[in-house]
Every structure is written in structure tokens, then in C-alpha cells.
Simulated assay, not measured.
Amino acid sequence: MHRSLDRRRLLTAGAALGGAALLAPFAGVAHAAESAGKGWPARLALPDGFQPEGIAIGSRPYAYFGSLRDGSVYAASLATGRGRIISDGTGAMSVGLKLDGAGRLFIGGGYSRQIRVVDTHGGAILATYDVGTPTSMINDVVLRPGIAWFTDSYRPVLYGLPLGRHGELPPADRIITRSLTGEWLQGADFTANGIERTPDGRALLVVNVALDGGALMRVDPRTGDARKVDLGPLKIPNGDGLLLLGRLLYVVQQAQSAIDVVRLNEAGTKGVLVTRITDPGFRIPTTAAAWGDRIYLPNARFDVEPTPDTDYDAVSVARI
């Protein structure tokens, strides 16, 4: 891949060290247990050369991974670690992905500028939407009641895919483009990354790697008004995937191979760092999904040049 996902600022060593230094005075470090419990594997092997980025887990113990290489989707059993490709690649990458209750994956298509919806039961592509401009990079996604929101890492906008009363997919002319305003600062290149909801469900949380050394923004989805979340001294220069469990927000700091766990207030306007999770199995993880008392993360390995023989995996760590 010639455009090596500079969206991640993945080799910004100075930023990574700076973030670690900020954390040291006031946060402990939580090292994950080696066992996944119940005899389930703590590591899931992915196909060689797969180039994973996103992960989704629904109401059953299966994890779904998207490929940056060709957009294919791989499904793995959390109980056994075994898996298979369930949707062949189209040549358009799969970045962030989320799974709904009907077994549909909502996928950000990266530089292809696509939003895709894939049926996990048969692997069929149910819909494809072209959004953005030639400079867009459709990155992460969050599902909210009646709508899926996607980030564009190179433009200050969110894309909304509104769903029908019974979850029907919309026609292309109903896609919402919501401009980000207020305190949003668009960087010279890659800016927006992971996206989640606030604990009260009224707003969205979006990573902005360009603002103030890496910040978390609270966005009103009705207007696009963005305000910086008060995280105290915590910076998230390598903030990638976000995972909200109750009021705990797991922020994957991919180039630092760590997860910062932040306790938010209900409105998502303020947060306090609880701890940092590290693990020897982390090899630049990007996103996170939960099952039971475990958090699962794919290792993107952005620090190596991908080849057809490069090994990839996902690892699990204990929830806080």
C-alpha cells in the first residue's frame, strides 16, 4: 500500500514517548493476564498477509475483522480461535466496522470513499455508498439507534447512514454529511479517527489527533458542534479505536501499543484516566471490541512492511 495510512501517525515516536511521560506521574500500568479464561485462546491467529484494522463482536462469541489489503472480512470463533474468510475482498479496503443485531457489518472503506454493508450470514455485500471527495478516507463507525455514523480522516465531516423504522438501508440520496464546527481543528492531513457515543447516548465522541497534541471531541450529531473533552493532562496523539463500556472509555493508543482507560461523566464532557493497559502481545493494536470480561484487539503491525507472508493476529486482555 503506497499510502501507508499516515492517518495513524503511527511512527511518531516523539509523540508516543511524550504521551507516556504525561501518564507516568498519575497512572498505574495494568498488565493483562495471559489466559483468556474458560480455556478460550488469548490469541487469535489471522491469515498471513491479511492486514487487519477493525474488529466487531456482536451478541455471539465471534469476532469479525476487516482487511486493509483487499477489504475481505474474516470471522473467528472466540472459543476455538478457528476462522475463515466470509466475504471476499473487492479491492477496496475495510477499516472500521460495527455489527448490528441483524448480523450486518457496517464498514468504512478507507481511501475507496465507500461505506459498505455486508451480511455476515452469507458474506454478500448488501449495499455500497460512495461519499466524500477524492481526498477522503472513510475510517471508523459507530452504530446508534436508527443511524450509523462514520468519520472522514481527511475532511472535517461525519457521514450518517440513516436506517428505516425496521432497520432498512437507505437510498444513496439520504446519506447525511455533517460538518464539524465549534472547537474542531482540522489538521493538514490525517485528523479524525475513532468514534463512539457518550455514556448518556446524546452525543458522539471522536478522536482528533491534530488538536492540542491529540484530543477527544464531544460532537452534537444534530449540528456538528464539537467541543474538547476535558481529560486533564492526558493526550491521545495516537488515539485510534474507542470502546465504551458503561462509563469506561477504552482508547487504543496504537503506535504506543497501549490502551488508556478513561472514566467519563454521563455527558461525556469530562474524563479521568483510570489506568493504562499494556501487554507483550500488543503489536500496534488499532481497535477494540468486548466479549464477557475480555477486550479483543487486532494487531495491525504498522511498523513493518506488509507482505503476503506477514503474520497477523488479535489478542485479548482483561477488562478493567
Score class of each variant (00 low, 15 high):
residue 6 D to Q: 10
residue 58 G to N: 03
residue 314 A to D: 03
residue 184 W to A: 09
residue 57 I to T: 12
residue 71 G to V: 08
residue 214 G to E: 09
residue 51 Q to G: 02
residue 168 E to D: 13
residue 65 F to K: 10
residue 8 R to Y: 12
residue 228 K to H: 02
residue 246 G to K: 00
residue 63 A to N: 12
residue 148 A to T: 04
residue 72 S to R: 03
residue 128 T to L: 06
residue 177 T to F: 01
residue 138 I to N: 03
residue 224 G to W: 12
residue 238 N to T: 07
residue 203 A to S: 13
residue 183 E to M: 06
residue 209 V to R: 08
residue 239 G to M: 11
residue 113 R to K: 09
residue 209 V to C: 05
residue 316 S to I: 14
residue 300 A to H: 08
residue 263 R to Y: 06
residue 40 W to R: 12
residue 239 G to Q: 00
residue 173 D to I: 00
residue 209 V to T: 10
residue 175 I to M: 11
residue 47 P to F: 07
residue 49 G to Y: 01
residue 206 V to C: 10
residue 40 W to C: 14
residue 217 M to A: 09
residue 302 F to N: 12
residue 213 G to A: 10
residue 53 E to Q: 09
residue 59 S to F: 08
residue 45 A to I: 06
residue 165 R to Q: 12
residue 129 Y to E: 07
residue 271 G to I: 12
residue 295 I to E: 13
residue 74 Y to G: 00
residue 225 D to L: 09
residue 81 G to Y: 09
residue 104 R to N: 10
residue 102 A to F: 13
residue 81 G to W: 06
residue 260 D to F: 06
residue 149 W to V: 06
residue 282 F to G: 15
residue 147 I to M: 10
residue 237 P to E: 14
residue 143 L to H: 05
residue 283 R to P: 01
residue 94 S to T: 02
residue 153 S to A: 10
residue 21 A to I: 15
residue 81 G to C: 08
residue 277 I to Q: 05
residue 99 L to A: 02
residue 38 K to M: 03
residue 84 R to L: 00
residue 32 A to I: 07
residue 220 D to E: 13
residue 298 P to A: 09
residue 291 W to A: 13
residue 228 K to W: 00
residue 46 L to H: 01
residue 189 D to V: 01
residue 9 R to F: 04
residue 174 R to T: 07
residue 212 D to E: 09
residue 166 H to T: 14
residue 9 R to E: 01
residue 32 A to V: 11
residue 264 L to W: 07
residue 311 D to W: 11
residue 54 G to A: 10
residue 149 W to P: 03
residue 73 V to G: 11
residue 127 A to S: 04
residue 200 D to P: 14
residue 76 A to W: 01
residue 219 V to E: 03
residue 7 R to G: 11
residue 15 A to I: 01
residue 72 S to Q: 04
residue 48 D to C: 06
residue 63 A to W: 14
residue 150 F to G: 07
residue 98 K to A: 15
residue 71 G to H: 11
residue 208 N to M: 15
residue 267 A to K: 15
residue 309 D to L: 14
residue 187 G to Q: 02
residue 110 G to N: 06
residue 58 G to E: 05
residue 10 L to S: 07
residue 1 M to N: 14
residue 256 Q to S: 11
residue 117 V to Y: 06
residue 254 Q to A: 11
residue 192 A to R: 08
residue 83 G to D: 05
residue 147 I to Q: 01
residue 310 T to S: 06
residue 303 D to Y: 15
residue 28 G to W: 08
residue 172 A to V: 02
residue 174 R to I: 00
residue 146 G to D: 03
residue 147 I to S: 00
residue 247 R to I: 05
residue 200 D to F: 12
residue 64 Y to C: 11
residue 285 P to V: 11
residue 149 W to Q: 08
residue 313 D to A: 10
residue 291 W to T: 12
residue 202 R to D: 15
residue 186 Q to L: 02
residue 177 T to L: 12
residue 7 R to P: 05
residue 106 F to H: 14
residue 316 S to V: 13
residue 98 K to E: 11
residue 138 I to R: 02
residue 90 T to E: 09
residue 117 V to N: 04
residue 162 P to R: 04
residue 69 R to Q: 11
residue 184 W to M: 13
residue 204 L to K: 02
residue 127 A to R: 11
residue 123 G to R: 09
residue 257 S to Q: 03
residue 137 M to N: 15
residue 243 L to H: 02
residue 193 N to I: 01
residue 101 G to Y: 03
